[in-house]
Design a protein around this nucleic acid. Structure first.
Lengths: 158, 158
DNA sequence: TTGAAGCATTAACCTAAATTAAGAAGTCAT
DNA sequence: ATGACTTCTTAATTTAGGTTAATGCTTCAA
């Protein structure tokens, strides 16, 4: 367990790494993301101050995710020891993921964007639009259009 | 903790229920699903023999999910006590959900269907197509078409 | 300071999947 | 057995979002 200071753009973890760590964000902002078979990035999680990022894989498996600093950050690095983690913390993450799966299946891009704004109002200003789009599962162009449409319709009072 | 026998079609849990239980399937098949704001069902999980179904919510919260028997089933019903659950079991579920989120964002309907066939080959024959479609996040019509296209292209050897 | 690269926006066009509708086949309760 | 449901399939049409491309802004390294 140690504390490290990392520059914006640094990759803390690559897909395929084994014996990965647990990263607790003291200051700054991290993201985890995957790269699919077509070479496209998909943001899985944003982790601001106080959040914990780690791959959910078994101890010896290769990681699925990349972890990157979006801002200069100070991060506490710990050994992974799943069996000692509070089950309640894990259950909460399951609940979050359950809701994300349901929302991906049932809500439109705009609806998911509005839900994101409500749930993570503090993160919106700190990350590029294209990463928010990626988190929502849409293209930056589609997000840009959705925001434009939303603005226009609210001006007209529709 | 008790063992119950339930008929196909029985609802074990409704959205909004509090003090929900943990259901361990001894025989038969359960599913959990949500109903969204537009009244549409979304299958969240299929649970055949040996699987456990439970809402991931905090003890006092209202449940998000319905749980229903797809076949006549025998189910062991236990009190929910998240803090006593093996963290490794929870971590595995997180891993499954992580992959599901990533696949929902990156794979097409047909790709998700093929992944489903590989991952749950035993379940495919036991549940109606429309529930598989619902699990994949597409309409029954789209799944039917995808299967037809797949068959046709494999005949032609494409 | 300036040029190159990355980012956001807009628009034209294209495609995957939703919607709607209709018909065939299976299941169920009476 | 018969009629009422439900499921599956197919097809026509529509729509949300993807792709491609052009334009103006930043940012940042040389």
């Amino acid at each position: 367990m140690k504390k490290i200071s990392i520059k914006k753009g640094t990759l803390l973890q690559h897909k395929g790494d084994v014996n990965t760590m647990v990263y607790e964000v003291e200051s700054g902002l991290l993201r985890s993301f995957s790269i699919d078979a077509k070479g496209k990035e998909h943001v899985f999680l944003f982790a601001p101050e106080g959040w914990i990022v780690a791959d959910a894989i078994a101890p010896e498996e290769a990681s699925e995710l990349f972890i990157e600093a979006i801002e200069d950050s100070i991060v506490i690095v710990k050994e992974r020891d799943v069996s000692s983690v509070d089950p309640i913390v894990l259950a909460k993450r399951i609940s979050v993921l359950q809701n994300r799966v349901i929302r991906l299946m049932s809500a439109s891009a705009i609806e998911r964007y509005e839900a994101f704004l409500k749930t993570y109002p503090d993160i919106v200003q700190r990350v590029p639009q294209k990463m928010i789009a990626s988190f929502l599962g849409i293209t930056p162009e589609a997000l840009s259009k959705a925001k434009g449409d939303k603005m226009r319709s609210s001006i007209k009072g529709i």
